[in-house]
Amino acid sequence: MKDGIARTLRALHQGEWQLARHLVAVSERHAEEHEVHHVARDLAAWSREHAGRLAEFAAAEGLRLDDDTREPTSGEGPEGLLLLHDLRALHLAATENSLHWEMLAQAAQATRDERLLELASACHPQTLRQMRWTNTLIKQLSPQALTSL
């Protein structure tokens, strides 16, 4: 198996387990919010299933996902993987910003704050464009970066 694919499988496996744990924690912290509580638990089960399926796939390829191999950080690893790592971080940051713009827009509508709504309406589309740009680059660069190692 190509090293880039193996690293990505490990990162996704770890990410799914982390997401499952986070979803369970949110479910427990907000047990009084029945929708949050139950949906978060269902989504956590999906992530646990995904992690299990990733482990099965990897095992069939002779790869253990629970070893200590970690994903490269800034300054470590092959250039292609570093670029993908950086693009993923940018995409996640833009996604977080997009959610904040959406929350502000919803609050502006609820409070009839035209200035805040105008601000969110002007800026949020650019944040969405940032997300599309990073997503496009990730799609373009992943095949070569992950299979060339």
Rank of each mutant, 00 (worst) to 15 (best):
A20K: 03
Q126L: 13
H124T: 06
T127A: 08
R10V: 00
R7P: 02
T8V: 06
A44K: 01
R115S: 11
K139T: 11
L90H: 14
A94Y: 05
L119K: 10
R48G: 02
S47H: 09
M103G: 04
H38E: 15
L19Q: 12
I5Q: 04
V39T: 08
A58R: 00
L83E: 03
E96K: 14
A94M: 02
P78S: 10
E35L: 15
L87Y: 04
H91E: 14
G80V: 04
A122R: 11
T127Y: 01
R112N: 07
A45N: 11
L128K: 10
R10K: 06
L12T: 10
H100P: 01
T136C: 06
A59Y: 00
S98M: 08
G77T: 02
Q18I: 03
R53N: 07
A55G: 03
V39M: 08
T136R: 13
L19W: 07
A44T: 04
T147Q: 10
H50S: 01
H124S: 14
S27I: 01
R132V: 09
M103H: 15
Q130F: 14
T134K: 06
L83P: 00
H91D: 11
A94G: 04
A25I: 11
A107S: 07
S47G: 00
A20Y: 03
Q140W: 06
L119I: 11
A60Q: 14
L81N: 01
R132N: 10
L117S: 08
Q130N: 12
V24R: 11
T111F: 08
P125W: 03
E76P: 02
L65F: 03
D42I: 04
A51K: 01
E61N: 11
I5S: 05
T8I: 08
R88D: 11
H34Y: 09
L128P: 03
